[in-house]
Amino acid sequence: MKKKITVNKQEIDWEENMTITRILEVMNYTFKMLVVKVDGKLIKKQDYDRFVVSAHADVKVIHLISGG
């Protein structure tokens, strides 16, 4: 069975060395005002390239716009 992670309540395949940047790419999340939390912990923007998520992680990518 392939390992999974949850991104905004949606399951996607987990990859070895999966960074936040990679997750945003897989999800096609191109909007810039984001808040990223992995298992409840806030990940800062400067760490998107470095922080590696483990399998089964619960990732939240909150898009901060209630405007438009």
Binding site: N8, K60, I65
Partner: peptide
């Protein structure tokens, strides 16, 4: 304008 809150962020 709630699309991101609702559809993307859930």
């Amino acid at each position: 304008w709630l699309i991101f809150m609702d559809m993307v962020n859930k």
